[in-house]
Simulated assay, not measured.
Amino acid sequence: MQNKKVSFHYLDVKFFFKNRETVKQFILELFKREGKKVDTVNYIFCTDEYLIDLNMEYLNHDTYTDIITFFYSENDQPVLSDIYISIERVKENAVQFQTSIKNELLRVLFHGALHLCGYKDKKAEEEKLMREKEEYYLKLFNAKH
C-alpha cells in the first residue's frame, strides 16, 4: 500500500534512495509515537544552491543548511508541511560526522519530522533533546529494518 501522507520529491537532484516506502511508513510511525496526526508532509530533495536561496528569501540566513522545514498547520490541526533537504549537504555531513549517507539522510528526515512535532534546536538543551530523539528513531528504524 502506497503512503499518500508522506511524499518524496526531487527538484534539481537525482539520487538512488532505497526502501522509500518503508522510510515513509516509519516517518508516519514517528508522528504517531509523538502524538501527531498527519495531513501531508512533502520532503523535497534539492541542491545546496536551491536551499540557500530559500534560506535567504524566507529566513534571511545567508548560510548553507541541510534542511528547512515549512510548517503550515494551524494549532492542533494535522501536520501539513514542506521539508526541503540538500542532498549535497547530507553527503558532506555524512563524511564530516563519519557516518553513512543513508544514516545521515535518515537522521535529517527524522529531524524535520521532529521539528513538526514541536522539538526545537536553537538552545543547547533543545539541541541535546533533538539529538537524543534523532538517535532514538535511528536506532528504532535500524532495529526494525
Rank of each mutant, 00 (worst) to 15 (best):
I87C: 05
F71T: 14
V95M: 08
E34K: 06
E132R: 13
L80W: 00
M1D: 13
V108S: 02
D39T: 13
D66L: 09
E21A: 08
R107Y: 07
G118L: 07
V23L: 01
L129K: 14
K37H: 14
S81Y: 00
Y50T: 03
E132T: 13
V38E: 09
E74F: 12
H145T: 09
G35C: 01
Y58A: 10
N3V: 10
K32H: 13
Y72R: 10
N142L: 10
N42R: 05
K144I: 14
E134M: 05
N3M: 08
N93Q: 03
L109D: 06
I67F: 02
T99F: 02
F16V: 11
F71L: 15
D82C: 09
F8R: 03
I87S: 01
Y119K: 05
Y10K: 04
D76S: 14
E21L: 12
D12R: 08
R33W: 14
K24Y: 04
Y72V: 15
V23Y: 05
N19M: 15
S86G: 01
F17P: 12
S81N: 11
L30Q: 03
I52A: 02
E104M: 07
E126D: 03
F15C: 11
E57I: 12
D62Y: 08
Y43G: 04
A143D: 11
K5V: 00
Q25P: 13
K133E: 11
V90D: 00
K128V: 09
R33M: 15
F141Y: 03
K14A: 15
I85K: 00
I87V: 07
H111V: 00
D12E: 06
A143V: 09
D48S: 10
T65A: 02
K102W: 04
T63N: 13
V38G: 02
M56C: 15
H145C: 09
H111W: 05
L28R: 11
A143F: 08
C117Y: 04
K128Q: 06
Q25Y: 13
H115L: 05
D82P: 07
H9Y: 11
L30R: 05
K122N: 08
K36H: 03
D121S: 00
K133R: 13
E127N: 10
V41D: 04
E134H: 03
K120S: 01
D76F: 10
V41S: 01
D62C: 15
K128M: 05
E49W: 09
V41W: 02
K14Q: 15
T63P: 04
H145M: 11
K128P: 04
A143G: 12
C117V: 07
R107Q: 02
F26V: 04
G118N: 08
T63C: 14
E29L: 12
Y43I: 06
I52F: 05
L106G: 05
T63D: 12
T65Q: 11
F26L: 09
N42Q: 04
K36I: 09
Y136W: 11
I67Y: 10
T99L: 01
I101G: 02
F8T: 03
P78F: 02
S100A: 08
K122Y: 13
I52W: 05
N75K: 14
Y136K: 15
F8N: 00
K122E: 04
Y10T: 08
H111P: 01
E49F: 02
L129E: 12
E21C: 10
N60F: 13
F16H: 13
V23F: 01
